[in-house]
Amino acid sequence: MNVLECEGLAKAFDELVAVDDVGFHIAAGETYGLLGPNGAGKTTTISMISGILESDAGKVTVAGKEITTRTTDGNAEIGYVPQDIAIYPDLTARENLRFFGKLYGIPKASLGPRVDEVLEVIGLSDRGDDRTEEYSGGMKRRLNIGIGLLHEPSLLILDEPTVGVDPQSRNSILESVELLGQSGTAVLYTTHYMEEAERLCDRVAIIDGGKIRAEGTRRELVELVGQRDTINLGVIGSAYRLVEALESMPEIHKITAADASVEILVDGASSVLPRILEVAQQSEVGVSGVEVVEPNLESVFLHLTGKALRD
């Protein structure tokens, strides 16, 4: 069953079209990524999905309830973690959580235990009564996410939650998101980090210029644009002799030689590599190193939009 369904979302700010006919769905337990560079329309899209921003067109339902800026019922199904740290610095973590817990209608009797539980999950149990202005950036980020998790939403929306985070906290956040997916929560995750999308997301939408350019699993996206694996061989002896020997192999699409290396573009590196090494041995060319580069979402994005993710 789909937790989130949105279709035909559009939003323009004066002349600037920020989002144009965006639609997708997310099932329970699925982590869905919106991958795109800054200004691609990710935040505008999730602002409309979470009922913060009024859309010009389109429809959003979460757990079967329609979401607009005027409705409130469905908002309780959504946990929203904004890109910027959104906590009150002069309140403690516990007070921040209690405040938002009350706003989300968590019953008084269960609010205290739930706050303790979330503090435990985000690793702030021992600092829960300190004012958040005394926290490190990573601790604030974890609390930022904790507030989104507090009311156990059906859909958790995370807007670039690792921007500006140290590597240790980043890893902790990514592990938390992985656990969420396993617990059955639908997760909408926006990022411009290709590695995060590849690690966390069951499906990814490539978004640029306010439009979704492609959508699917990582493998589907790679196949969609016909990307191939690259094998880089370090050679001892004549690289050109190896090139001549390999040219007749039908699995090889392109081969380029340099002084001590050969770059080979193939379909399915794992199946072709043993045969290549065999030909090298037969040609009396030594192999000093092997590197297999599989196509990634970065290259998919480059192929689809003609620009790099971090442009």
């Binding site: 009922g51 908002n75 959104a86």
Partner: peptide, 12 residues
């Protein structure tokens, strides 16, 4: 403080 979007996204 960035908390306005949180308030706007709450079921209120």
């Amino acid at each position: 403080f960035g908390t306005l979007p949180r308030l706007l996204g709450a079921p209120i």
